[in-house]
């Protein structure tokens, strides 16, 4: 029994001869924000479309709430809110009328759901302005309003901050964070901007040319990428004393009886290790962790990096 809200099994999508998505296995956990990171054309949108049943996978399977999506769409999809690619609405209608159409077709959790959704994204309710007269940012906000109007448990948002101004980006970001932290929603978002994902996501999946290169929690990634020297030794107490007495170094953190981290990268690891050994300590591991997130991504995506 897994706790995954979304799980894909060898999800593959072929377009003609090329694979747009290849053997993708992603795992989205309940109550967390999963960030799908990849360059434009890496297969993020195709993946999300398959998760929503908008395109059928060539092979593989999508499990949502542990049930296969195929055949259970009527039960599963109303519990999901989604925003895929560019915001799309009827240009000759106002925002409220547009939402009204989708509310009529799907149903809503309360009678003032349309107003609530528009309030949340700061668009006016029952405004006279037509969708065709909206700016890109406002269109994007309306699309977000549509995604959250029925208070879904799971949100699938494809590049939700596209077209927003910096203030709007910050607003949407804190709003998404809030949905997850306060309301316990599960959220899958995609972006091609590393900094955006690292600010928002709890778990990160890196996708490049349709292949999932890495799936890891941000905490682990950050831990790995912050700069320090990690030692695994037989006695941290003596190690601490030696560091203070011999190297006059106080910037360290003792994790438990065997693990200690040193935050001064100017010291020579070999010298420290040899002094530790001289003093009768057993050193089973010593390494420098010095990749920044960017460097890390550059390395695993094969050098080109992500914006």
């Amino acid at each position: 029994m897994s706790d995954y809200i979304i799980e894909t099994k060898n999800l593959t999508k072929m377009y003609g001869m090329g694979k747009s998505v290849a053997d993708l296995n992603i795992h989205v956990q309940k109550g967390r924000i999963y960030g799908l990171l990849g360059r434009n054309g890496a297969g993020k949108t195709t993946t999300m479309k398959m998760l929503l049943g908008l395109t059928q996978p060539t092979t593989g399977e999508v499990l949502i709430w542990e049930k296969p999506l195929r055949g259970n769409e009527r039960k599963i999809l109303p519990r999901i809110g989604s925003l895929i690619e560019a915001p799309s609405f009827y240009p000759n209608l106002t925002a409220t009328e547009n939402l009204h159409i989708f509310a009529t077709l799907r149903g809503v959790p309360n009678p003032h759901a349309i107003k609530d959704a528009l309030d949340l994204v700061r668009l006016p309710y029952k405004d006279k302005k037509l969708f065709s007269q909206y700016s890109l940012g406002m269109k994007q906000r309306l699309a977000i309003a549509l995604a959250i109007m029925h208070d879904p448990e799971l949100l699938i948002l494809d590049e939700p901050i596209n077209g927003l101004d910096p203030i709007g980006i910050a607003e949407v970001r804190s709003f998404i964070r809030q949905l997850c932290d306060e309301k316990g929603k599960t959220i899958l978002i995609s972006s091609h901007i590393l900094s955006e994902i690292s600010l928002l996501a709890d778990d990160i999946g890196i996708i490049d040319k349709g292949i999932l290169l890495e799936e890891e929690s941000l905490a682990k990634l950050e831990q790995r990428s912050s700069k320090y020297i990690h030692f695994t030794i037989s006695d941290t107490a003596q190690a601490a004393r030696i560091l203070e007495q011999i190297f006059d170094e106080k910037q360290f953190l003792i994790q438990d009886d065997y693990n200690i981290r040193l935050y001064n990268l100017n010291l020579s690891v070999t010298k420290i290790v040899s002094v530790f050994i001289e003093n009768g300590l057993e050193v089973s591991e010593a390494h420098t962790c010095g990749d920044s997130l960017e460097e890390h991504f550059k390395r695993i995506t094969g050098g080109e990096g992500i914006a």
Partner: peptide
Amino acid sequence: SREYTDGTLKNIFVIPV
């Protein structure tokens, strides 16, 4: 054709209709 050109089909299919 407007459902295609306005791209609204994706909103309708996920309702799901």
